[in-house]
Amino acid sequence: METGRNKIKKTGMYLVLLFWTVVSLFPIYWMFTFSLKNNKEIFGENIIGLPKHWLWSNYEAAFTAGNMGSYFVNSIIVTGFTIALTTIFALMASYALTRLVWKGRKKVNNIFMLGLTVPIHAAILPVFIILRNLHMTNSYQALIIPYVAFALAMAIMISISFLQNIPAELEEAACIDGCSVYGIFFRIICPLMKPALSTIAIFTFLQAWNELMFAVIFISDSKYRTLSVGIQTLSGAYTTEWGPIGAALVIATFPTLIAYTFMSKKIQESLMAGAIKG
C-alpha cells in the first residue's frame, strides 16, 4: 500500500520534471529542425517533426545573403576583446583594492559595487552622445568600451572573492626573495587566479554575446553589426522564409550550446557566483 502510493508520487514527480524539460527545450529543438526545412514543411506538412529532407541550403543562404559570417566574426571580435580587457582590468583593480594599502580603497570598492545595480539604461544616451562627439559610433570600440565598463563591477566582485582565499604569506615570501610588486602580481597572483578568470570569462561572454540595447543603438553600419543586431535585420528581410532565419538563429546559438554541453557545471556555477552577493 505504502510503496504503491510512493510509486504514484514518484511518477507524478517525474511527469512534472519531464513536462518542464519539454517546455524548456522545445523552442530550441524546434529551432534546429526548422533551420533545415523548407517552407512547405514548416508551414503545415511537418511542423514539429524532424526534417524530411535536410535542407543545408538554408545555412548557405544565411551565410551568403544573410551575411551571418561577418556578423559572427564581429561578435567574436567584440566578445573576445571584452572578455580579455574585463579580466585584466578587474584582476588589476581587485589586487589593488584588496592587497595594496592606500587611503580610500574601501570607499572606491563600494562605488564599484554600486555598479552591480545600475541598469545600462542610465548611461545609454550620455554614452551615445560621447561616442557621437568622438565619431566613434559604428566601430568595435563603441561596443567593447561600454561592455567592459558594465562587466567590471561583477568581475571585480568575483575576483575579490577569489583573491581573499590566496594566503598573503605567498606574497611575503616572494617579497623576501626580492620580487617587486609587479613580479608578485604577474608571477604569483595571476597564475593562482585561473579559476576566477574562467568564471569571469563565462559571465562576460554571455553578457557581451547576447547584448542587444547598446548594439542596436550604437551600430548602424552593417560592417560592424553583431549577431544580435544582424538577426534582427535578417528577420526583417526574410519575413516569409523561415528556414534561413532558423539557420541564422542556430549559428548565433551553437557556440553557447557547445560550451554548455562540455562544461555545464562550471557555467552554472559562474552564473550563480554573480548572484551570491547581489
Binding site: F89, L97, V108, F112, V118, A123, I145, L152, A153
Partner: peptide, 13 residues
Amino acid sequence: FMLPATLLFLTII
C-alpha cells in the same frame, strides 16, 4: 592597477 578600471567606470557609468 586602478587606472583602467576607474577610468572606464567613471566615463561610462
